Amino acid sequence: MNSTAKRLRAGLLALAALQTLVSVWQYVFPRSFYDDFPTVRLDPPYNEHLLSDVGGLGLALTAMLFYAARVMDRRVVVSALTGYVVYAGTHFLFHVRHFDHFSVRDAVGVGTGLGLEWVLALTLLYVAWRHHRTS
């Protein structure tokens, strides 16, 4: 591996480490993140910052999925689907733990829709893994 590739890998690992730290804190301890991360609690009750950040992350994931569909490279497809499986799984798990104020109809609708989305992503990841393994 040449020196440029080594520096690129080091930079990617640094970004991944920083993002992991913040993301785990946000996902596992959301109240602590809200209360303790500098400036977050200063945002207004309707949190445009939070929603636009989540929307931006969704758009980034969308771009990865479109790119994977375009190039159909094994590594790109598996990488994009792995990211989507993590997103869809954590989104589904959040909602199935927070149905207290939902009607039964809404809980079934949301739970089913998000569950199917996660199962589809897992299925596509399995198909991609099998397809590229036999190719």
Results as ranks from 00 to 15, higher is better:
N2C: 02
T4C: 08
A10N: 11
A10C: 08
G11S: 10
L13S: 12
A14Q: 12
A16Y: 04
A16G: 06
L21G: 08
S23A: 11
Y27I: 15
V28N: 06
F33P: 00
P38E: 05
P38L: 03
R41K: 15
P44G: 00
N47V: 04
N47A: 02
S52R: 14
G56I: 12
G56Y: 07
A60C: 15
T62L: 15
F66A: 13
A68P: 06
A68D: 03
A69D: 15
D73N: 09
R74E: 03
R75H: 11
S79H: 07
A80C: 04
T82L: 11
V85H: 00
G89A: 04
T90W: 01
H91I: 01
F92T: 00
L93E: 01
H98K: 01
D100N: 13
G109D: 05
V110L: 10
L116T: 11
L116R: 07
L116P: 09
L116V: 09
E117W: 15
W118A: 03
L120M: 12
L120G: 02
T123Y: 01
T123D: 01
Y126V: 13
Y126I: 11
V127R: 14
V127Q: 13
W129F: 09
R130N: 05
R133Y: 12
R133Q: 14
T134M: 09
